[in-house]
Design a protein around this nucleic acid. Structure first.
Length: 137
DNA sequence: ACGCTGACTATTA
DNA sequence: CTAATAGCCAGCG
């Protein structure tokens, strides 16, 4: 069951220590994280989106901060999430310092054809990919 | 329980 | 353009 989420993911649904392990017990409840990861994986190459846009696509009640928080655990998931395609509202690579090394985020983006100057995505308006719009939830 | 923090955002000056 | 402020909510000491 993909991203469609008429309900609000309650804070209880994400209480299962996502930072340490992502539910290896096979209990596959649709946590907020999984929905975030799924959306991020759908971002086309060469496009970017914002934390707020993802939060909005999943239901506005979760603040954008929680999306960033989910991304913190993204590198532990399988398959891996292209977290480098998620930037903040201004197109700034605010999450670069959370990669293996800070330069990696920009390297990955430019490798996909996204120009980045001084940690900012160029032509952000054109590069922006709105999940709520493209996925037509 | 309390207060602080944070990969955020919108608003105001 | 920058800076300050206020919401936001899970995690942590």
């Amino acid at each position: 069951m993909p991203i469609t989420n008429p309900f609000m993911p309650t804070r209880k649904s994400i209480d299962s220590e996502p930072l340490k392990s992502i539910k290896p017990s096979g209990k596959k409840d649709e946590s907020f994280f999984e929905q975030v990861f799924e959306v991020v994986r759908l971002i086309p190459k060469g496009r970017v989106t914002s934390y707020g846009a993802i939060a909005a696509a999943l239901g506005t009640k979760l603040s954008a901060r929680m999306v960033g928080w989910a991304m913190n655990a993204s590198h532990l998931t399988k398959p891996k999430v292209p977290a480098h395609r998620v930037v903040n509202r201004n197109g700034l690579l605010s999450g670069k310092m959370h990669f293996r090394y800070p330069e990696q985020m920009q390297e990955l983006l430019e490798k996909e054809g996204v120009r980045v100057v001084d940690d900012k995505v160029q032509d952000f308006d054109k590069r922006f990919w709105d999940p709520a719009k493209e996925l037509l939830l």
